[in-house]
Design a protein around this nucleic acid. Structure first.
Lengths: 186, 186, 186, 186
DNA sequence: TATGAATGAGCTTTCATTCAT
DNA sequence: CATGAATGAAAGCTCATTCAT
């Protein structure tokens, strides 16, 4: 379904190395980091980067896609295996913690005008989050009047907040606690 | 303490026009907008911009300083004139709403590495916010266990969230309500 | 004398397809068209193109050689079968008309510095043209004082003119008539 | 009518040097010569070239405009001062001879897709040529049935021919004689 | 002080060519 | 032989910054 051509072994290896390097570089230097540095970090020539990602935005988009894939994976794991009463809160926490790892990259999407298409992945993530929310509501651990879009907004906010202000671990925990509290039944 | 020279009248006028133009341009185009466009919008030549702000980061920093000044002003007004029971929440709301006006500019600071110095203004803002918080706590409208750094974190988060996700007015209101709710006594 | 190796059947087939594709592509896009596009159009991989033509200029040269071969063929046909009185003028016309078909390709040689070696084919073409000229002169339809190099110059000029200016069919006919008139006895 | 801003002295000097350098470079190396080389030859930095000519095509277009200006000037001089009986032929000759000086530049227009706008200058040149033609026809030195578009086509052809084939001076003279002969009454 | 032309490092992107598969 | 991924040298162009006017 995904690959039009199965790609040669070395090509796939390089693609992965470039993605990994790009994730690092952009996390460290921001989206204005040069493609050349990505290439250098990946140990390939500049041309190779552009063979895999014809424009810089494609590279950024690919990183985001990969990141989102991981997030969706995690949600689905929690839906399948987690405790309905806590899975929703665990996942919320997971998203915020991940953002630290992700680095600045996330926040670059808006800026770059990387007009992300309607995007199946965002929808998938939203839906999965919705199921976790419902389960928590039925388990009585989440406010019954909390709406999904509000939850998404809150997680976006907390994530970006965690990135923008350089919070200590302690502060992040306390803030997160407050936010999660706002989602619990009074 | 601040001005080495009182500046000629026209120079001061130019400085102001450049700042205003820069605020507009960076809000519209992001921090990657060119200094030249700022100059054009301000109706001055590029050299004049650099005479007033020796580097681009200085221009960005000056914008931030100006913005923060307004925010502090507002806080002090509320401390002086507002209803202690609601002023804290009003100010929180004001900050989030302002962020929409401010546009992308705010979020660019982190990225640009404009490592803002300890900054008196941030401290002033924090202190003012602290006084509003205390007043609300004494009035019984804010959780007594809410700490100032958490409040700052929450406002940062909500602000950035409002900027990053393009929330509707309605969604912003509901999300804000949830956040403020988290700061009210249970 | 010519082929070092007789070439495998598929190799010869590929060579032909590449040449055909190159002729098309360069006619459409000019000599700055990429070798990769030639490969794509030919349905082979880029490596295959370079196996057959070690450098781009070789590919261009080969196209020219092929084109010239056709032109010489046509001249010999006319020498053998045509009416001596008109064959010269027919051939002149044929060359100019062909140039339209050939497209821009021809004119690219000069630029590319594809310093064509003395080239047997050009000589062959010139000689054939010379024979047609002589025949026409003997038939009294061509000026007796017209020299072969002048004729070659005229046909070159008309050809390039037809390519450079985008003449209508009508204009090309009239211009050609004038030129041919210049070669008729007064 | 032409200059929106009168340009500073040094700017005008640089602009002229760039144009001169570009004319040389493109004549020597063809249109694929690099802008950087033009800059080097002009003794300015690359940025200066792009300040004056925002894209390479603009530089090429400017060269052409300058060349055409010279041609039109010459035509007008001949209209004013020349002998009506010979001026037409003199100008035709002048155009062909100039092409040698102009070098390859001329022929690059077609290729570069420098979609020259309807172009006042071409029209001016055509009109001037038209007047020379009429004068010659009235003086009885040019065929009365020769049309202006045919003349333009012939001069284009001869010019391009002279450029493409590397004719000797002698050959160019003889070929030109033939072409001009075609335009004389029989 | 203001101007705006000049600078030049740096960025994205292209493409002829090589070479491991 | 064919393949197509990798290479890397340019090329075109941008823009923060400097400096002569």
């Amino acid at each position: 379904m995904t690959p039009s051509k199965p790609l040669r072994a070395d090509a796939r290896r390089n693609r992965a190395r470039i993605l990994a390097a790009a994730e690092e570089v952009f996390a460290e230097r921001g989206a204005s980091a040069s493609t050349e540095e990505v290439a250098a970090r990946a140990g390939v020539a500049i041309g190779t980067v552009f063979r895999h990602f014809p424009a810089k935005r494609d590279l950024l988009a690919a990183i985001m896609k990969e990141l989102r894939r991981r997030l969706v994976d995690r949600a689905e794991t929690l839906i399948a295996d987690g405790d309905p009463a806590t899975a929703f809160f665990d996942y919320f926490t997971y998203l915020v913690e991940s953002s630290a790892e992700i680095g600045t990259v996330v926040s670059l999407l808006a800026e770059e005008g990387t007009s992300i298409e309607p995007d199946d992945q965002i929808m998938a993530l939203t839906q999965a989050f919705g199921r976790l929310l419902e389960a928590a509501q039925q388990a009585g651990t989440a406010r019954p009047d909390a709406r999904l879009d509000e939850v998404m907004a809150l997680v976006t906010a907390t994530t970006h907040g965690a990135l923008a202000g350089s919070w200590t671990d302690d502060l992040r925990c306390r803030t997160l606690a407050l936010v999660l509290d706002a989602l619990r039944p009074r």
